[in-house]
């Protein structure tokens, strides 16, 4: 089958338009996905930019004011690489250790909105937002995962008695 030129031109125009759209959307819609350590190491470069960040929620630091809907908490550094997490014994253990290790970098987070259901100690917080001049992370989107709960797991040995 041969295509007349008008089809080739029309098709090419569409393909170019779609590629242009993707490039434009990627440049506006993409965010760096960083760990707490990386964010603090590249603070100057990253301040004010929309980034995604993940860390372990430190339970004692969660403060929620239902009147203003302001939620503040601190996250502790966890590695960003999933292979690294596996090597360290799985996400559940990594989160647990991160919260209990005061030597790891920590980051204060402010979020305005309802308090998410899974907001608790040793949850993994995955957030989109901006690092402010004050070094506090202002989260616009907050997602929480509690891996220990629904991962494949072996029951407590006490349960077998």
């Amino acid at each position: 089958m041969s295509f007349p030129n008008k089809f080739i031109i029309g098709g090419a125009l569409m393909v170019i338009a779609i590629i242009a759209l993707i490039v434009a959307a990627v440049s506006q819609g993409s965010q760096y996905f960083l760990t707490v350590e990386e964010l603090q190491a590249r603070q100057a470069e990253m301040t004010g930019r929309e980034v995604r960040i993940s860390g372990a929620v430190v339970g004692d630091t969660i403060v929620y004011d239902p009147e203003t809907l302001q939620l503040t908490f601190t996250i502790a550094h966890v590695p960003g690489d999933s292979a690294e997490i596996e090597r360290l014994g799985g996400l559940g253990l990594v989160l647990h250790n991160a919260v209990n290790d005061p030597t790891l970098p920590r980051l204060k987070v402010v979020y305005t909105g309802e308090r998410p259901d899974l907001m608790r100690n040793e949850a993994q917080a995955i957030m989109t937002g901006k690092l402010g001049e004050d070094g506090v992370f202002h989260a616009e989107e907050l997602l929480l995962k509690c891996p220990s709960r629904y991962d494949e797991a072996v029951p407590d040995q006490s349960a077998s008695q």
């Binding site: 434009a24 993409s30 965010q31």
Partner: peptide
């Protein structure tokens, strides 16, 4: 790097 919903909402 990740792309969020905004990428899809634009494209």
């Amino acid at each position: 790097v990740t792309v969020g919903p905004r990428y899809y909402e634009l494209a």
